[in-house]
């Protein structure tokens, strides 16, 4: 099998982690990649910790097992940092993107994180300011694309627009695009 990237999304029910996992997969497919995306299903409910996963590969994906060692982790809710081991299985050279006001340096100290490339972005604040609702999934996707360089940001935006146009009005679509762009610009590295 050629190189495959696995992404794990941590969120709380209602924050759009599953949508983000699916959007990333669809964008990658538009770029000619093979994909898989799936949520972890339990007794899902608003506010409960949930995970969703995206696999991206140059060749067809045959495996159907859980994602255990994701190279990329996106944390949509900072309160999960205290309750969930977001670094579980993440290799030393993995990338972690967290929705928080803190700087990556400060977060590294607080959580005592060794290795890994750490990025932070105030995604909830961006979502509130631009979209008017605290749904951080689209800005988190923008931040994650900048942090990883997984895909071309314009391709992600084009696909998000196409996908959201089916569900939302033009204003909501454009606000989400704006939020993606702003998080892409504002994400902080160490």
């Amino acid at each position: 099998m050629s190189k495959m990237i696995e992404v794990r999304w941590h969120g709380r029910g209602g924050q759009g982690a599953k949508t983000a996992a699916y959007l990333l997969a669809e964008s990658a497919m538009q770029e000619g990649k093979y994909i898989q995306a799936f949520p972890e299903y339990g007794p899902e409910r608003m506010g409960a910790p949930i995970m969703a996963f995206t696999r991206i590969s140059d060749s067809p994906i045959r495996i159907h097992c859980h994602v255990k060692s994701p190279q990329v982790v996106a944390v949509l809710d900072p309160t999960l940092l205290e309750t969930v081991n977001i670094l579980d299985g993440v290799p030393e050279n993995g990338t972690v993107v967290v929705n928080t006001d803190e700087s990556p340096n400060s977060l590294r100290r607080t959580l005592n994180i060794s290795g890994r490339r750490l990025f932070t972005v105030p995604a909830t604040q961006i979502a509130l300011e631009i979209i008017g609702r605290p749904i951080p999934n689209t800005p988190m996707m923008g931040a994650m694309i900048k942090a990883t360089g997984l895909l071309d940001i314009e391709a992600v935006i084009a696909n998000t627009r196409k996908s959201f146009e089916k569900k939302f009005n033009a204003q909501v679509v454009e606000k989400n695009i704006q939020a993606i762009r702003r998080a892409y610009e504002e994400v902080k590295s160490e």
Binding site: A25, E26, I35, A37, F38, P39, Y41, I61, H64
Partner: peptide, 12 residues
Amino acid sequence: YDGFIISHAVEC
């Protein structure tokens, strides 16, 4: 076909 593993997974 397998519940969740296939039914709820997005694939190409």
